[in-house]
Design a protein around this nucleic acid. Structure first.
Lengths: 245, 245
DNA sequence: CCGACTTTGTGCATCTCTTCACAAAGGCAC
DNA sequence: GTGCCTTTGTGAAGAGATGCACAAAGTCGG
């Protein structure tokens, strides 16, 4: 029974750290634009809205890139974090579902600026296919698999209604995609090697409502009884991007 | 020095649990629509995509609403979770920034279906003010404070460009709002009693890219040296909802 | 070259969240 | 009733994240 000793440069950055790296990157880019050359963990932590000890521990997972007594070189750190996140290469992204949300995403500037390139827009509605959005022509969802393979798409954004999401998901996985960003309000079932990240407006609002209620009233009404009239809220809402299909 | 003993029905549901309750609620609504009367923790856990022990522990924080040997009454559990989340009351929501994203949000069906009512749309661009979106007329951002007070808005969604977000944030907080959903890619500075939740597409994509890179290559290139030519990615992207102002 | 000062990187204690495993509770068949 | 079977609710162990506090490492003025 040997003791588990963590390697200095072991592959395995904690998820919580990975989730914060983009935040640091953004703060660093802000500093770089203002011409700052070096930054202390304290200052960077404030800019990113985290604790400075946490920031230092996070960065220590990437390597020892700071200089004691001075801080971190902004440009160098930007490069190291970008490299770790895989932003030094280009990622082809496809957006499926060109409803309100799909359009918003296609026009999103932050996409292009960071190594993410929109390589395709898809919808199942013939009325939308052929339309030109953000310099791209919307293609019919039938061609999904072939286009994914042909253009080397590795990340797919699902912005379809909830009902279509799982089917789209299955198809893009069959085409070899292993990274999915899901905006549809459903739990996607995927194999273990596929990463799904979920963005769900409705859930965020409900979490806010919980805290708001707590602040307002010191908790929900105390009784556990049913009220006289129970109104059951139904799951009638379409996906955020209510596209066709 | 007394030991801290958790009360049985203490007000204080873990954050991780609160974040999952909406997920359970959605799964339960799906079951209710299909006419299911009772459900076991195992089945509900599968539907919500979590571990069944976790689900039971989560629910146990609300109270003891299950029946051993049987499971949970779907309708009753829907009611209890809704009540805990504060969805049995109506929340007035204002959306600030009517760009691509703002429009998508205003048209989002899931909003209305769950006790959230869009009570106002705001933008600083005169070209957008007056436009009719999802049955509402876009108002000028100047009237933000008075409308918030008048219509009892308690949750504000910020869908402005990054540059305007902090200013909007300060103003709505001054008007009494303590719950904010922020889509702009900036860290908002707020007092302790204000809750901010952040939705950031760019960050989600970067996290996916990290995992994708790991899967593809077994890690980033090994050297720690600078490449000959360093391209620094700039933070040029506008907010997801690139509205005016 | 030295000593004062700054800031990193990390060991450690703490806290939170997750998962296991099982006793207790309840339904149901007979 | 009685006993078997199912499923909850939870104690306890484990895993992971956080934050403190400080030694080690480096800068800089003189």
């Amino acid at each position: 029974m040997t003791r588990r000793i963590p390697q200095a440069r072991e592959r395995g950055i904690p998820d919580a750290t990975v989730a914060r790296l983009p935040l640091y990157l953004r703060a660093l880019n802000g500093l770089a634009e203002r011409g700052t050359a070096t930054v202390s963990s304290e200052d960077l932590a404030v800019a990113a809205g985290v604790n400075s000890a946490k920031l230092r521990k996070d960065l220590s997972h990437l390597g020892s890139y700071g200089t004691r007594g001075v801080g971190y070189d902004v440009q160098y750190l930007i490069y190291q974090i970008s490299r770790e996140l895989g932003l030094t290469q280009d990622w082809a992204v496809a957006i499926v579902g060109v409803g309100n949300l799909g359009r918003a995403l296609a026009n999103y500037g932050g996409f292009v600026s960071r190594g993410f390139r929109v390589a395709g827009l898809f919808d199942a509605d013939p009325a939308v296919v052929g339309e030109r959005i953000a310099g791209l022509v919307v293609e019919h969802a039938d061609g999904l698999e072939s286009v994914i393979r042909k253009r080397g798409v590795s990340i797919v954004v699902i912005a379809t209604p909830a009902t279509a999401a799982q089917q789209v998901c299955d198809r893009v996985i069959a085409a070899g995609v292993t990274s999915i960003l899901n905006f549809a309000p459903v739990v996607l079932t995927v194999p273990d090697d596929v990463d799904v990240r979920k963005v769900d407006l409705s859930i965020e609002l409900q979490i806010l409502a919980f805290h708001e209620q707590r602040k307002a009233s010191g908790g929900p009404m105390m009784g556990d009884e049913w009220p006289d009239e129970v109104v059951v809220v139904s799951e009638r809402g379409a996906a955020l991007g209510e596209a066709s299909q």
